[in-house]
Design a protein around this nucleic acid. Sequence first.
RNA 1: GGCAGGUUGCCCGAGUGGCCAAAGGGAGCGGUCUGUAAAACCGUCGGCAACGCCUACGUAGGUUCGAACCCUACACCUGCCA
Length: 313
Amino acid sequence: MAPVTIPVLAINGQTASGKTAVAVAVAQLLESDGIRAEIVNADSMLVYRGMDIGTAKPTLEERGGVPHHLIDIMDVTRGATVADFQVLARGAIAELRARGVVPILAGGSALYVHAILDEIDFPGTDAALRARLEAELDQVGPAALHERLAALSPLAAAGILPGNARRTVRALEVIELTGSYTSTLPGWSHAVGDVLQFGLEVPRDVLDARIEARVHQMWADGFVDEVRGLVDLGLREGRTAWRALGYRQVLAFLDGELTQGEALQATIAGTRRFSRKQMGWFRRDPRIQWLVAGELNAETLASAVRDRVLLGS
RNA sequence: GGCAGGUUGCCCGAGUGGCCAAAGGGAGCGGUCUGUAAAACCGUCGGCAACGCCUACGUAGGUUCGAACCCUACACCUGCCA
């Protein structure tokens, strides 16, 4: 078999931009050309089993027979991390390529996408050390810890705001583990070869309307019951899952802190804000080619992949 | 019908004579980011020709050098009595 080029197609975009549907459509178009493609998820919350309605996880029907990777791979009690995800996603991409299948990386978690595609090495972690630092944080507060960080590494401290306890703790952890810590992300340089990056752009007002409709639909589809069920499975015990957009608001409702209507509105507002943040992140990546979301997106992306595959063969 | 309380900026909510364009929270807007990232943190947040001016604390008037804060009337909402 002649060696052919297998590009990675990355489809980025805000939540509710339609990237999932486009990714599936692209895979199906390629399939009809005799090019196999499968989807690798790059949405942080889709990894959790049982978190379906609130994450707008594509149903089997919506997946249209296209295999999806890194969806439903862990329980809500576990804390997903970028570092884990990086390893898993790169593994999936390599495995697909080895099989001659085009990986379509679809998702809206910008840090995850960055970590998968670009050269970023995450220093390790140590549970005991982390626990100690967090206990200390409770004692002395974030400002004191930040001061200590500043004494150990002025540079690292400069990149972290004093109020940000989370990042301060991690910086101290890494310094203790490795001796130094870098508080700035590396630039844009692919660690995975041959990547085509596209972004779907949706006008703000259109996206906002979609988000609102989508959240209402989640409620209608039984989102609150989904959360109730997950609570029994330990949703509150995890470190990450319960903070997911919508889930946190429903939990607040179940705890009596919000009315159900307030929880719904807060979810809409939170999702809207999240979409802004996503955009801010993706916009900075100069390699992304932006497409106005619309009918022809799948065609455009499929032909970009096709061209690349044929060129390489 | 009577008595008591309330009406504050986009929303909620402090303020009860000057230090009030008015605490705080939310929303909105903008930003930061190397193992929680759908997270965490930060800034901004009445208007303008902007070290000043204008508009603003239910409406209209009054007291005062000075009022969101005091008085009067009116409107609407709320609790108790009938």
